[in-house]
């Protein structure tokens, strides 16, 4: 049981109907994620990386359609679960951190309430214990003065704090798998590092699996064990994080080269040819 991977995905396809016929945005994706493994999915806008993340939670809304040969989480076939059963899994066993805390938190509910709600949906707890768990969670995401933060509304906190609140909310039911979809792209560089360090610490400390979705190759390489590079709905390259610079696919190479470096000696950055190849 423990040897089986936490998540197995085989031939995942997501398509949307358009007047010109269905458009596939994820085209036959395969991935496995071990327990306590950190997987990064990298790609540019429109590569299908977010759709992959959402489809693991079966969050593709009509008219979008999702099919998969296998979508197994901890021995459970997610494709066979009904709406109600999926609800019980979302949050409790698989959670997702969204991009922008500004749009993902309920503006008319205090932070303490929202976090407690995330827990209450999945566990019946006496009110006092509930409160204690919320404070403990806020503490573990390193928010100073958690009692005060619990009484605040989302508009009263900064972006970095908001993202910590999101993380607290997502981790309080102690899920086995955390999907983080661009968790830091709305944040400043210095706060980015803090938030990712925090996610890393909480994930490795609790035996969780992590899927980190981002457009930033270097960031993913810093925080993940394995990396999938997506382009046009397909995985074009899979490698371990330390081997990223040895990437062989022209798209990955192009992406790596197109990024300015801290010590830039090139006069011009190589750009990707839109037809798929690399032009220098």
């Amino acid at each position: 049981m423990t040897d089986a991977p936490l998540l197995e995905v085989e031939d995942l396809r997501v398509s949307f109907a358009t007047p010109k016929g269905p458009v596939e945005v994820v085209k036959g994706l395969n991935l496995t994620l071990g327990r306590e493994e950190r997987l990064g999915i990298v790609g540019e806008s429109g590569s299908g990386k977010s759709m992959t993340g959402r489809s693991i939670l079966r969050l593709i809304r009509a008219p979008g359609k999702q099919t998969a040969k296998t979508l197994r989480f901890d021995g459970l076939d997610l494709m066979a679960q009904g709406t109600r059963q999926m609800r019980r899994i979302r949050g409790a066993r698989i959670s997702m951190i969204m991009q922008d805390p500004k749009f993902s938190l309920n503006p008319v509910m205090t932070i303490g309430h929202q976090i407690a709600e995330a827990l209450q949906v999945h566990e019946k707890l006496p009110r006092r214990d509930l409160q204690a768990r919320v404070i403990e969670m806020l503490n573990s995401v390193r928010l100073n003065d958690p009692e005060r933060v619990a009484k605040m509304y989302p508009h009263e906190v900064s972006g970095g704090m908001g993202q910590r609140v999101m993380i607290a909310m997502m981790l309080i039911p102690r899920p086995q798998l955390l999907i983080a979809d661009e968790p830091t792209s709305a944040l400043d560089v210095s706060i980015q590092a803090q938030v990712l360090d925090l996610i890393e610490e909480l994930v490795t400390g609790n035996g969780m699996g992590l899927i980190l979705i981002s457009h930033d190759l270097n960031l993913v390489a810093r925080y993940c064990d394995r990396i999938l590079v997506m382009n046009g709905g397909e995985v074009v390259e899979a490698c371990t994080a330390p081997d990223l610079h040895k990437a062989s696919h022209p798209y990955t190479k192009g992406l790596l080269a197109a990024q300015p470096r801290m010590q830039e000696t090139r006069d011009e950055l190589p750009v990707l040819d839109r037809s798929g190849g690399v032009r220098t």
Partner: peptide, 15 residues
């Protein structure tokens, strides 16, 4: 902008 598009715009600005 995306990384590859960023590279194009930076090149343009430099030129």
């Amino acid at each position: 902008l995306d990384v590859s598009v960023q590279a194009e715009i930076l090149n343009l600005l430099k030129r």
